[in-house]
Design a protein around this nucleic acid. Structure first.
Lengths: 325, 325
DNA sequence: ATGAAAGCGCTAACAT
DNA sequence: ATGTTAGCGCTTTCAT
């Protein structure tokens, strides 16, 4: 493989002159320039990016940490991240963690080892304190509320948005309300759970563990939720579901079993994914794609300006009223 | 940031000894080893991967080329790729191309510039001949039939699988059969189209452009397809749909409009995604995840063995009979 | 406008 | 068992 020395020799100039041309710097005469371009073409020369990364201490690469890859929530977030990265000529390294600590650590270490210039954490299981020390090696932004951490953050006020959703159900006359969550740990889920409990309290309803469904991520999980529901003597009349996919699964299985939505069971989804519109699902829009874009923009800004102050950006939610409540 | 020299100095050894310890090589005395580990800890030292990449001419990074990120087909493929990459301690760079030539070229150039060790092409618009020269810089595998190219390939026999699907419809008494495709270019789509035309020919049916639907990727595209169908005087009685998502959208909208599946409209999907099971959709399983895994394995094998002969691996399809035909 | 040379942080061949 | 040294391919400072 040809390198810069070969070009220099063939074009009869010094290495530095080649470098100048390569980097569009001024003060190179036209004839030398031409000789260099000719040599580049003749030897099919391309720069070795690893050498450039080494010398610049920068890779134009951002790591994206997510538990699973094949999941609508993360895909949507990723879509936003990717769109923004594209504009800035940045590439993304997709790091699947399965929520395992060792994998999450591996991503942080990549930052320390200068493989990546920054990190976007879509979701994690590691406590924030363990992440914070790594901010000295480059910008890190999490897609959840971090509350004044050195880690930056883009987030939705999940407490308020959830409260809003529940109150909407209550207004519509519901008192028996169940909840489907993705995880029970995680900042986002915790906020939602708190909102749920507070709302129940406000209408003097007890918290019932049997109406809680965890680990609901996919459309097929929704099917399962409904089937659990069917075995219950006393069922909730409404369900808050933290994923439109899961909500869609619930609706499908409800229909199959003659359970009418919203009459027998009202449902509010979350994320406002395309599937929600097709199912005419009432849902809460949380601007996932915009959040992704913003996360990248923060990382990129901090890389460019070499500043370390974390940024926090809260996003608005919006209830999309359709026909499932 | 501490480097290997600092460690050497602090531990009172030479840099090669440090390097040996860093790479778990034998022949280092225990006390020196300890001194080095202490120094590493004290200075919070980590290796700079860019230097290693430069010297080794290898990055443990594979580029994944795909047109869109937020799409069930590619997500599933990616899931397989990612699982396999994980086992080999490889990272993935996700390169979204939007089917634009300049972006596809950029990925190939990354290989030439030694940023990545190999490429997996999930889908592309560039002609194969333009890709082939790049195989000298590292292994490239495409997820479509390449027919004896220096580019490796994992693929399904789309012609046969499609023919099989159509014959199944014909056996069930259908003659008026429509088709939803993702793109009209692309090797996979072309094979499918040919199978479709051949099948029509075999039952003496004309090819009707109005029963062809292109650019159908997502669930909402399915909704649109059905609504176009509704405006037609003569409608097909069956539809072959190259995506379970699109098929699901069609079914949803059909129900909304009192069109019965399969009585008024039979549907065969493609991919056997989870959504297909929930919709009880008859579909053709094409082992997307396994294809992804295999694609990575081929790339990795060729990197490890430094061999250049392309590999081709054909996958089996399977018709999953459910209730939509 | 051009070139010489130092150095980014590391590995590996060679010497001892 | 340990150290010396020559690169990997490039950018950049400093001369000229």
């Amino acid at each position: 493989m040809a390198n810069i020395k070969h070009i220099a020799k063939l074009a009869n100039v010094s290495i530095s002159t080649v470098s100048r041309v390569l980097n569009n710097q001024p003060y190179v005469s036209e004839d030398k320039k031409k000789a260099i371009f000719d040599a580049i073409e003749q030897l099919e020369y391309t720069r070795n990016m690893n050498a450039i990364h080494l010398i610049k201490g920068k890779t134009n690469l951002v790591g994206v940490m997510m538990p699973f890859i094949n999941h609508a929530y993360f895909s949507r977030l990723m879509e936003g991240i990717s769109a923004e990265a594209f504009k800035e000529n940045y590439q993304l390294i997709l790091c699947q963690t399965n929520y395992e600590l060792c994998n999450e650590t591996a991503v942080l270490e990549m930052l320390k080892m200068k493989q990546i210039d920054g990190i976007i954490i879509c979701s994690k299981s590691m406590p924030l304190e363990q992440i914070e020390p790594y901010t000295r090696y480059g910008p890190i932004v999490a897609c959840e509320d971090v509350n004044q951490s050195p880690v930056s953050s883009v987030y939705l006020d999940h407490y308020t948005s959830f409260k809003y959703g529940i109150n909407y159900l209550i207004e519509k006359g519901h008192q028996y309300i169940g909840l489907c969550l993705g995880r029970n740990s995680g900042a986002n889920s915790q906020s939602r759970l708190k909102a749920y409990k507070d709302a129940l309290h406000s209408i003097n309803q007890p918290f019932r563990e049997e109406w809680m469904f965890y680990q609901s991520y996919r459309i097929e999980d929704g099917v399962e939720v409904l089937n659990k529901l069917r075995t219950m003597e006393q069922r909730p009349t409404a369900l808050l579901v933290t994923s439109d996919q899961v909500a869609a699964g619930i609706i499908m299985e409800a229909r199959k079993n003659g359970i009418e939505v919203p009459n027998d069971l009202a449902i509010i989804g979350f994320d406002n994914q395309p599937i929600a519109e097709v199912f005419d699902l009432t849902t809460i829009d949380n601007q996932l794609m915009e959040m992704g874009s913003c996360a990248f923009r923060i990382v990129h800004d901090q890389i460019a300006k070499k500043k370390n102050e974390p940024e926090y950006r809260e996003f608005d939610f919006r209830l999309i009223e359709r026909s499932t409540v």
